[in-house]
Design a protein around this nucleic acid. Structure first.
Length: 379
DNA sequence: GCTCGGAAGCTGCGACTGCT
DNA sequence: AGCAGTCGCAGCTTCCGAGC
């Protein structure tokens, strides 16, 4: 590994890449945050949730729709799925082109308002591209296969209400601080969202145990130890329990300063008790990603490095290495890498809570939720 | 030395506009 | 209809001073 810690790497980025900015460390930190997001997105895609993912969607608080929060990623029930084939001769694929192809294939677009996003523009892909929206759903498209002169596209309609949300946070070490950084205050923003999104709410008992409470539509409720109740909801088929349930997942980069010896700092405790699942993306993982793909890639992945460097440089015109905007060829290489190295990628993550569970359990829970009969549940 | 509140820098992105 | 440019917001991040 080229860098023993991400904090050193942040310094390298600050000194080499961002020295032209007024505040190089800040810019480097922001970039590392973007990388945490990119890694998470491609893991979810590799796990098979492409058609469920949305990006930066406004999410209403449970029982309080006046307040919404943009959530990084969410998984939504898909109510319709289709694939279409379009001609690749144009380098530009607009929402309109896809919508026209859908009309030609007798896909019912009634009640959907068109958006003007481009799925592909100048070789840059728009991930989770929304092409139309109705009151209760979004219509999205993505590339399924890219062969010869034609492109095969996924088109899928997602229900507005998600069943899982993900928030990614990167927090660095501050200069001169001996303890955990106070900037983790900002991560509490994510914690707040996590605590207000789902119908499964967290409460404390008199003796300090964490319990969950969930209301049914008739006003009755269930209270139980939280992890038990969460599992019960995830694996139930009870419409009443699932209707407005949202699993909340936090992914934070480990800056090596969350603990003093074996004791978690207050900030980490706050995150642990706010998210249903809290994951570390380890220093080792982030370093490996950066080293293998961005700094010292093997020949076949060199192109990713070029895209990354051209996106994070003085005077760059357009960033093509973010969770939304991604260079088409880099997208393919990333998917190949994640597919070929899935085991290694999964080892980049540690589960902080629930501490009895493993990453494979999270994957199972996501699949379980994805495969529910949402049409019946949300009816 | 620590916590808290506020400030500041960087950038994606949607909305808007005006041109072709 | 497509596209480029502008603008402001929001979210990402780190920094810093006051007060204890």
């Amino acid at each position: 590994m080229a860098y023993e810690s991400v904090d050193k790497l942040q310094k390298v980025l600050a000194d080499d890449v961002f020295k032209y900015t007024k505040d190089p460390k800040k810019a480097a930190g922001r970039t590392l945050g973007t990388l945490v997001e990119v890694i998470t997105y491609y893991l979810l895609k590799t796990w098979g949730f492409n058609n469920q993912i949305s990006i930066e969607r406004g999410l209403e608080e449970y029982g309080n729709p006046d307040i919404t929060h943009n959530v990084e990623y969410a998984l939504h029930p898909t109510v319709r799925n289709s694939t279409i084939t379009i001609d690749k001769s144009d380098k530009l694929i607009t929402a309109n082109i896809v919508l026209k192809a859908l009309e030609a294939a007798n896909f019912d677009l009634n009640g959907l308002e068109r958006k003007s996003n481009n799925l592909l523009s100048n070789g840059i892909l728009r991930n989770a591209c929304t092409i139309a929206a109705s009151d209760n759903s979004f219509l999205l498209t993505s590339i399924k296969t890219d062969k010869g002169d034609t492109l095969e596209l996924h088109v899928y309609e997602q229900s507005k209400k998600p069943y899982v949300i993900f928030e990614c946070k990167r927090v660095g070490i501050e200069e001169g601080m001996s303890k955990g950084p106070q900037t983790i205050e900002k991560a509490k923003q994510g914690a707040y969202v996590a605590r207000t999104a789902s119908s499964l709410q967290k409460i404390r008992t008199e003796t300090g145990e964490l319990h969950g409470i969930i209301y049914k539509s008739n006003g009755s409720y269930i209270i139980k130890p939280f992890v038990d109740l969460m599992e019960e909801v995830v694996y139930s088929n009870d419409k009443e329990l699932l209707r407005r349930f949202i699993l909340t997942v936090g992914i934070v980069s480990n800056h090596g300063n969350w603990f003093t010896s074996e004791n978690p700092n207050k900030e980490l405790k706050v995150l642990v008790q706010s998210y249903d699942w809290l994951l570390f993306l380890t220093d080792k993982g982030l370093s490996e990603f950066i080293d293998h793909l961005l700094l010292n890639p093997p020949k076949e992945q060199k192109f990713i490095r070029e895209v990354f460097l051209s996106s994070y440089t003085e005077g760059k015109t357009k960033n093509q290495f973010t969770k939304v905007q991604m260079n088409l060829e880099a997208n393919r290489l990333l998917l190949d890498y994640f597919n070929a190295n899935l085991k290694a990628v999964e080892s980049w993550f540690n589960i902080i809570s629930p501490n009895v569970k493993k990453l494979s359990d999270l994957k199972s829970e996501l699949s379980e939720l994805t495969n529910k009969d949402w049409a019946a549940i949300l009816k």
